[in-house]
Design a protein around this nucleic acid. Sequence first.
RNA 1: GCGGAUGUGGUGAAAUGGCAGACACGUAAGUUUCAGACGCUUAUACUGUAAAAGGUGUGCAGGUUCAAGUCCUGUCGUCCGCACCA
Length: 805
Amino acid sequence: MDKIAIEQKWNQLWKEQKAYSFDRNNVKDKDYVLEMFSYPSGAKLHIGHWYNYSLSDSYARYRVLKGKNVYQPMGFDAFGLPAENYAIKTGIHPQDSTLKNIAVMEKQLQDMGALFDWDSEIKTCMPDYYKWTQWMFCQLYKNGLAYRKKAPVNWCDSCQTVLANEQVIDGKCERCGHEVVKKDLTQWFFKITQYAEELLNDLDKLDWPEKTVAMQRNWIGKSVGGEIEFTLESGKAFRVFTTRADTLYGCTYVILAPEHPLVDEITTAENKEKVALYKEQSLKSSEIERLSTAKEKTGVFTGAYAINPVNGEKVQVWVGDYVLYSYGTGAVMAVPAHDERDFIFAQKHGLEIKRVVCDPNGNEELPFCQYGTLINSQEFDGMDSATARVEIVKKLETQQKGELKTNYRLRDWLVSRQRYWGAPIPIVYCPDCGTVLDERLPVELPYNVNFTPDGESPLKKCEEFINTTCPKCGKPAKREADTMDTFVCSSWYFLRYPDANNDKEPFSTEWIDKMLPVDKYIGGAEHACMHLLYARFFTKALRDMGYLHFDEPFLSLVHQGTILGPDGNKMSKSLGNTVSPDEYISKYGSDVFRTYLAFGFKYIEGGPWSDDGVVGINKWLDRVERQVQLAFGDYPTTQENGKAEQDLNRVLHNTITHVDEDYASFSFNTAVARMMELTNALAKYEGQATKNREVYTNVAKQLVILLCPLAPHFTEELWHQIGQEGFVIRQKFPKFDENALKVQQVELLVQVNSRPKARIQVATGLSNEDLQKTVLCDEKVQEALNGAPIKKVIVVPNKLINFII
RNA sequence: GCGGAUGUGGUGAAAUGGCAGACACGUAAGUUUCAGACGCUUAUACUGUAAAAGGUGUGCAGGUUCAAGUCCUGUCGUCCGCACCA
């Protein structure tokens, strides 16, 4: 068979004769299979795309064979930084390059022969989509879930531009090498923290990989503790957050984050210079660097003192960069006796270390960071830490000096981007009315914009865009010049797909309540914390506004692994280790390529690229073709259903049950292995002098159906070669017959003291006593036992018997 | 650093606590062929042996168990994420 020539033929025929399409009138059997949509970054599909999309399509096809009405949409996450950077470099407009890339990718995805529902295609950069992204912003704003506050950005003074984290290399601008600084801008946030508790609790409902659930749990980072108020000599107060209020009597100093607004105010004249210098330095390092426990804990004294509310003690106020302004209150109480970092810091700067918790095991060593019994803590002496951490805060509560508080590591979602290629934020600033939501959607992104960086958001310089009228009073007003994070676009696209052509609303509530949640979501593990959390947040927020009536968007989640370069590194142009799928596809065809991807890697792990097995798969498909054709060829027949037939059938049903499970769990490599075994069994049966045509052809036919999800064009051609009616994809997944697996005899392993000694044939279904008798009659077994008394016998049915002597 | 994974032949990899290496690639020998390609057969963890028998083997060190790649403790290496890449 010319595997390449037949591909176009079947793609064409499938399309013309509607071999498969989602049936909108049969929602009860719907199966929403969704792959994370792709960013149209390069001109062509790379190996990663193939790995993700062709094999999820195999899963989708498997579900179709299992009788499901599969809905598998496809689209493009088309806004984003790379297109804009490319534009700055080459002058090619992001819209032009993006739409061109999309056109090429669409063609390639269609050639893949996947069951995508192209009627519901989405491109997030088109006004008919981002209109509704802006609508989402409006709803969040109206429900108090969008707000503005100041937040720092990475700023390169030389390029006069905001930089993404990935554009900052070792604290320097990737373009010019100039030092990057933090700069405060007023920016838009979504209040995802309002849903922190529900986002955490509902993780239990999800059929997600455990590690992803663990990562989200950690990302949300719930910690239960208390806020405690310290008063400055000036009378001003600030709060610290702690989970260890039981150690409050051991607090010997407090530390403020360098960004804390009080720092400048309280620093005494003689410390001003030193503190200013320290602040400047710490603002240059990233949070990861600052939190690293390997890094030396640094800090400087402000000269100010604060009062510990629980005992009135005067403690020094320091500035230290291991305290983050973005977490808790941006200030911590330091208890060197009972905290590792504080201990190191105190030793270095000669600060007092005061023990207030005893180790129940009498260990005198410091720091002691576990729970214990309180000492030197006035009326709390003798209390255990667990009780005291609540009781001490409760006491302060009566004096309005503290309160119990649950903190989350999760921060509100910063959605402002000072960039061109994104969805404009639908906000207008009116001199009279102030900040006004603009619901005259879409707020269109203008084409003619100068996006060369010069310190301003590109849209700010576009007169036709920035100047508008106030939606409230109609007077001249200015638009918000920032655009939205592209994660906003991808936080609701799965809701748009089923109703992609709706121009009245983002989606019909009634319809998506039927179509969602997504039954199987497939995508990279790198999205564990951000995209997957944002999409869950959107779903819950829209539910609370009444636009939909389910709690979670993705019931079941699978991560595909990453195909790395042959050198084991991530494929990247700069490393020069990229591998193009094109040469394999033009040489062997897409079916061979995707079957190889299925067989050569563990789907959820991926691994370094190697094409060692591609020829092997090509050979195997040829072998399948040969074996199947032989089954439908001429040969002497028999009506007998003897051992050879039973053996062949046993392999068939063993294959059916395993391939079924393997497809369901994305274990494509073992599915292929099982089908190879079936091919081997067919070859073996072919050697029989006379063959039972019914059994033989049935096995061959079932093999073609089993293989259809991985090699759709190939199996379709073969199906017709052997004279079958209809399309393979319209057949039923082979039915498993447990009886076919039954055998009369098994080989049993006999162990003595857990050492293998003999293998003997025994009948199945014997009782343990009968089995023992049979086994003990065997010569080799007797020899191994050598007459020693048997202390214990362990039987694993049909597998082994172990005599302990 | 924190969080999450992961470690098995020459290679990709299999193994509900029950014969480690299924299924392939590669390699070697044989067979078919005028020849090559294709196909077919056999072997292929290490060590040992004439051949067997035996011994050793799942990063490393311990532990639990009749039995450990699998469970537990510790340790080392590698990979991924860390909030403006998507």
